[in-house]
């Protein structure tokens, strides 16, 4: 958490318990949960199709870690919401407009280079975020973040390692991964777009400052790009709103596939 405590106009304590605050708290946790869930779903598509058997296992490991994070976060979000929805009800029965994942997470796998770039951008973000969330005033969230942090360190090592191999590999690999980076860069602005939910959570000492995060993230990104001999694309601040339930067309298809069984057999146990 940042060294200087937030000094909001109204002390954070008096907001606790209000519907707005609970709603913001729940939404904040859902954003984290959905990003991990959607990213895990994408990684699950790689099983059987990776460039080498060893990478199959690596990508599956990433997916498993992310599902684990999603389950913990979704369960918590369901409790905060207080409507009796558990992790599966939230995962399988919400509409696309109710999903609050980063737009970046739902982008298609493309080739291995595109998958690595997407992974690396999010891994680096999660690394900065979980490091700070581990000191959150929300002790439940702090515990989840502390556990996730260990996993994310490994994810970031894996994805940045591959970024470097592909960026500084062959002419073809550099071309492919630079192209992927140019394509996906426009989604990175959303990682640090501050809205009311972020402000409330920061004021309450629950969430770190996204602006601080942005600076650290940017420095780490630049270091990896340099090692990978890749060009940082120009900033493209398109106001993506995945965090607010406004997604690209990809999410609909992703969820249709993911949710089809529970939706087809309402009430069934699996």
């Amino acid at each position: 958490m940042s060294a200087t405590p937030a000094t909001p106009a109204t002390p954070a304590a008096s907001l606790q318990g209000t519907t707005l605050q609970i709603d913001a708290h729940c939404r904040y946790v859902l954003r984290l949960a959905d990003t991990s869930l959607v990213l895990a779903q994408r990684l699950g598509e790689w099983v059987g199709h990776a460039p080498e058997l060893e990478e199959e296992l690596a990508l599956a490991n990433l997916a498993l870690d992310l599902i684990g994070q999603a389950r913990l976060l979704l369960t918590y979000a369901g409790e905060l919401e207080g409507r009796g929805r558990d992790e599966d009800a939230l995962a399988f029965l919400r509409e696309p407009t109710e999903f609050l994942n980063l737009t970046l997470a739902e982008q298609p796998n493309g080739d291995f280079g595109q998958t690595i770039v997407r992974q690396w951008l999010i891994d680096t973000w999660q690394l900065c975020l979980y490091e700070r969330l581990a000191a959150s005033s929300d002790t439940r969230l702090a515990a989840i973040a502390a556990k996730a942090l260990k996993e994310t360190r490994y994810h970031q090592r894996f994805s940045s390692g591959w970024l470097v191999r592909l960026g500084d590999g062959t002419a073809e690999s550099r071309q492919r991964v630079q192209r992927a980076l140019d394509e996906l860069w426009r989604f990175s602005a959303e990682l640090f777009a501050v809205d009311q939910v972020d402000e409330r959570m920061h004021a309450a000492g629950i969430a770190p400052s996204l602006t601080e995060l942005a600076a650290e993230w940017s420095a780490r990104i630049d270091a990896d790009l340099s090692a990978a001999t890749l060009r940082r694309p120009a900033a493209l601040p398109y106001p993506w709103q995945g965090k607010r339930g406004v997604h690209t067309e990809h999410l609909g298809y992703l969820l249709a596939e993911m949710q089809y069984l529970p939706r087809s057999y309402p009430g069934a146990r699996w």
Partner: peptide, 14 residues
């Protein structure tokens, strides 16, 4: 199989 030592450690871990 791995391309380099760092990858070998990661694969071994996985």
């Amino acid at each position: 199989h791995a391309a380099d030592a760092r990858m070998a450690i990661e694969h071994a871990r996985d």
